[in-house]
Design a protein around this nucleic acid. Sequence first.
RNA 1: GCGGGGGUGCCCGAGCUGGUCAAAGGGGACAGGCUUAGGACCUGUUGACAUAGGUCUACCAGGGUUCGAAUCCCUGCUCCCGCACCA
Length: 950
Amino acid sequence: MNRAIEKKWQDKWHKANLFQADPDERKKLFITVAYPYPSGAMHIGHGRTYTVPDVYSRFKRMQGYNVLFPMGWHVTGAPVIGIAKRIEEKDPWTLELYEKVHKVPKDEIHKLSNPEYIVKYFSGEYHNVMDDMGYSIDWRREFRTTDESYKKFIEWQLRKLKSMDLVKKGKHPVKYCPKCNNPVGDHDLLDGEGATINDLTLIKFEIDGKFIVPATFRPETIFGVTNLWLNPEVKYIEVDNNGETYIISEKSYLNLTNQIKDLKIIGEVDHNSLIGNFVKNPITMDEHPILPANFVDPEYGTGAVFSVPGHAPADYIALQDLKDNNELLNKYNLKGIVDDIKILNVVTVKKYSEFPAKDLIEKFNLKNQNDPNLEEATNELYKVEHSKGIMSNNIPIYGGEKVAIAREKIRSKMIDDCIGAIMYDFSQHPVICRCGSKAVVKVMDDQWFLKYSDENWKEKARKCLSNENIIPNELRANFEYYIGWLEDWACSRRIGLGTKLPWDKQWLIEPLTDSTIYMAYYTIAKYFRDIEVNDLNDDFFDYVLLGKDNSQINDSIDIDKIKDEFNYWYPLDWRLSGKDLVGNHLTFHIFHHGTIFNKDKWPKGMVVFGMGLLEGRKMSSSKGNVIILSDAIKEYGADVVRLFLMASAEPWQDFDWREKEVKGIKKRLEWFFEFGDKIKQIKGSSINLNNIQEIELKKEIDKWMISQLNLRLKDSTMALEVFQTRKALQDALFLLKKDIDHYLYRVRKDISKKDENVVYVLSTVFKTWIKILAPFTPHSCEELWHSHGGEGFISNEKWQKYNPDLINEKVMKSEEIIMSLIKDILQIKKIINKEINKIHIYPCENWKWDVYKIAHEISKPDVGQIIGKSIKENIHENKKELSGFAKKIAKEMTKTKYLGKIDEIAILNNGKDFISEEVSCEIIIHEDNSFDPENKSKQAIPYKPAIYME
RNA sequence: GCGGGGGUGCCCGAGCUGGUCAAAGGGGACAGGCUUAGGACCUGUUGACAUAGGUCUACCAGGGUUCGAAUCCCUGCUCCCGCACCA
């Protein structure tokens, strides 16, 4: 099997337009998989993602469905903008990534400085590699999301949502790079990956008509404030916020100015003039001194901290430090002030003292305010107080209330009373954009949102979800959770490729928003080549997709044909996507279908994919830990790659590309590929799969093979129906291969005699086998089909239905009896370790079968009942023997499946030669116990003949 | 913290609507056959013990339900994933 053969069949499929699907009278099946964002080369992880729908499509096509499997390119979004820029700037890391990992030729790479070229280049690459993989895609429907007609479709969608009042204007905080002038995602960061945005409360402490505004997670601790902290080594400035003057650290200005509009710097402020002075607590109206502490981070919050020594280890310990620091005390003349400070209790927590901060300091053995364990101690206390703390009884209004609840109440009260404000900051510092500058939290206003928080919309989404098959079903709970949890989603962007928001052209539509119902677009995309873009107006889409009668449609368009095609394919039968998209794209997909389309057009199923590992480690292009799909095809061939990806894990599980196992799969496929020639050799002439002469089989072992074949076919088909590609191959490849090996071994004598039964059995197996594997390894199967007399394409053949009548449990049982007899004989031989001359076999006596039958009817290992009933029915005279056997059968029946009485003598005679050969000893089969010197014949139980060796 | 999913033999992994489970299949290791040799292929072994097909110990740990538990229930330990404006 080589690339040339694969190419040959790909060309033939292409020339025959085999996978172009148009509406007809057959039952349809419409399957889509998330279109790729082509910003790099396709790797084996992508290979798995796109092979699954292909296998399923091919399977369903063979079952007689009219299958539509289309593909498009999601090129909207921002990442390529950054990539292009970095290429332009000749960033070495990016250049190397694209040369070495994505394998872009040297003379192409400079062209990638154009983002449009990047997506053009890689979508072309993807298309080629998908062809090389043999995917059965209807390419007439291919598109990019920047096509003008697609933009028309998206504009229609957004206007539709707006008319339903599901779009609104608002503001929200994002990670933002002031230099790039754009929001940044985790993948855009040099440093600070995983940083989240925290919600803080700014509280205004007045001093001489100005305000120091510490930021806090815990506004409820305002009741325990003893002092404020400023860092004497930090530069502070005064800024004007709408007429109020704030004192903040210089370093926090950058962040704050992105959150508060028109924040103006007034000038520097000398903190020496502040330390030692007093501020007013806006809630308690107490006066608190301002004290120096070097643990205060000028970049976090506003560079000021309010001190709650009872409940914050840092504050407590800083206070101790200060008391011991005469130099500082003298410098600012603080001695008396510090001595006057009385630590306050605010929150009560079980198992903690009045001042939990002190407990934590002792627990972590903290030495001073620069102790590295301080953060951990702080986190622990914050967590405990939040989850288990109660506001102490001496606290006005909120005393006795849970901390978590009081916190929210106090916060909103402060905001309402204008003594507090919301501020955002990162959970960790620093956060650095790829461009090298510091990122900030920016509050975006003027932003457009989709109202996923809308309860009515959520309800529709839930209904839509309940209508769907989810594979694997465990994820259903996840989807439900996400539907409930989703809040309004910012759907507009400043930077990137994409469609402009139709009513506010300064904004681009965000890429997760322009990819929610595009599956509908596939159904009609092939018509757009011949339609003027301007004719794709809202009336057009309303008519085609929603069935609304509208007049503003160009007469020259055969609109009903287009509409009929959409209605033929929709609803979507299966949507496939990665598990990382469960919480956004797939959930959005549900939301949008739920509200835009009628119930009869709601999607019917989703399959969610796991991730890819490489030799046990997570695959990642940016870290270079990937195998590019085209390389894998070059090395192993498409069929091997396909087969491995489908066999190593179920679609929703993580798969692990291990070279050794890939090679194992390759050998398997080779064995299968040579199987036809093997039959040819046995037969002595070529085989004709199109015309296999029927023979009535007599021998058990031949029937056994046909039985196994049908069993494997059945299990495999059932697995494939629900996307269990691994299980399907487990049955269709590994287990069937094992059966065939066993059969070949069993009939090895007949093979040399060119037995016609064997030839018939093997040909039948081969023909079916090609069909079951055709969805997985289509190239190999076409080639085999073609070279062994099959007519037409195997891709067009009817799927082989299993025949339940041929799955013969008794035949399987008889083979089992023979094999376990051999095993037992060998085991006994090994144990007794004596020279054996003859082996006598005794079948089970009739009365024991009767007892077994009774036991089976009782269907419980209830010895008493079995004996009772047997005696009543007069089954055996010897009561002692009967009860002994009843005990035995009670135990045995839980281990064996009861199939009724079978003719053991016939089975044994049939297998006699084989047994004899396997155990290298003469075998004598007795019909009674007339020769039984050691009384071994009594050992026999149903399905387990007795053995006597001499 | 919130939500979801796990912990099986040397490794990966099936089983998990209770009995046919000492536990599929693959990979690895070992032995035999074939072969000039190696590779490939085929057969067997891969928890312990055993002079008659058996017994014992086992599916994270502990407890329970049951005639019977890898499978059901409880407790503990532990691992993985998602938590957003980003494809």
